[in-house]
């Protein structure tokens, strides 16, 4: 069975006062296998973020179902949703979302503390992780004292420390310079190799070219997908570029 299964997902936003309806997702179905590294690409407004928010259980779809490890996350009760998110999902955001009242170490500990893990265990998990991510030296520092790349690696550490089933990344390289971005993508590849399932939403070709599979979304629907197969990153980059060009020029329905 797939780790994540998305079945004919639909999301319609209705403006609060008028009958104006905006269809963000019309019919999205796909599945993610254990250990996969999936990138979802699309223009601004294509529905990527809506999709991610639904997967993250931050938002509810108007139709369709999402199964994570066999559990329908659309049906989870509001009172349990936070605990579910904490235990099963790890998040990496474009703007890091670190709390400036906490040191780097405490930011990473946050989800564990919320699950009431003892300090010894938290510490045991942190040591190898921080070493791997190269942030062991900045643990006592505060978010405003470190660089963007370090902040994002901190966010990755925070996402990984709960041993989640799935990492959800929303434009993780969006706020980083190219060097820091490459560094982060390398880390993503490494943790994926170690068995971590990753789902990344991005419109950066460089970022997507590290994934094993790339899904393209346009106007709320899945338009195309590319498998890496035996391609290296550069070949993958070429292929994604070409697909995007087709998507942008010839991909209009009814023409």
């Amino acid at each position: 069975m797939s780790l994540l299964e998305v079945k004919s997902l639909q999301k319609i936003y209705t403006t609060r006062f008028g009958g104006n309806q905006v269809q963000a997702l019309s019919n999205v179905s796909f599945s993610v296998e254990n250990g996969e590294y999936l990138a979802i690409m699309g223009e601004s407004g294509s529905g990527k973020t809506t999709l991610l928010n639904i997967l993250a259980s931050l938002d509810k779809p108007t139709g369709g179902e999402v199964f994570l490890d066999g559990n329908n996350i659309v049906k989870i009760k509001d009172s349990e949703i936070s605990a579910f998110r904490r235990d099963n999902l790890g998040f990496v955001f474009q703007d890091f979302n670190l709390l400036d009242t906490f040191s780097i170490q405490d930011n990473i500990f946050l989800p564990l503390v919320l699950s009431q893990k003892p300090y010894e265990e938290m510490n045991k998990r942190l040591k190898p992780l921080s070493k791997k991510l190269g942030i062991d030296e900045i643990l006592p520092k505060y978010p405003y004292e470190i660089s963007g790349g370090q902040k994002q690696r901190t966010a990755v550490a925070r996402a990984l420390i709960t041993n989640p089933k799935l990492i959800l990344a929303d434009e993780p390289t969006g706020a980083l310079d190219s060097k820091a971005a490459m560094n982060l993508l390398k880390i993503f590849s490494e943790i994926n190799e170690a068995g971590q399932t990753i789902l990344m939403v991005t419109h950066s070709i460089a970022a997507a070219s590290h994934a094993k599979r790339v899904l393209f979304i346009k106007d709320g629907e899945i338009y195309n997908q590319i498998y890496r197969g035996s391609m290296n990153n550069d070949e993958m980059y070429q292929k994604i570029s070409m697909t995007l060009t087709v998507l942008a020029t010839g991909g209009v329905k009814g023409e």
């Binding site: 936070s82 904490r86 979302n97 925070r158």
Partner: peptide, 15 residues
């Protein structure tokens, strides 16, 4: 802002 981040990290609203 802090309120939002904490929710994203897995704290529920009432908490």
């Amino acid at each position: 802002d802090r309120f939002e981040i904490m929710q994203k990290v897995g704290m529920d609203k009432t908490e």
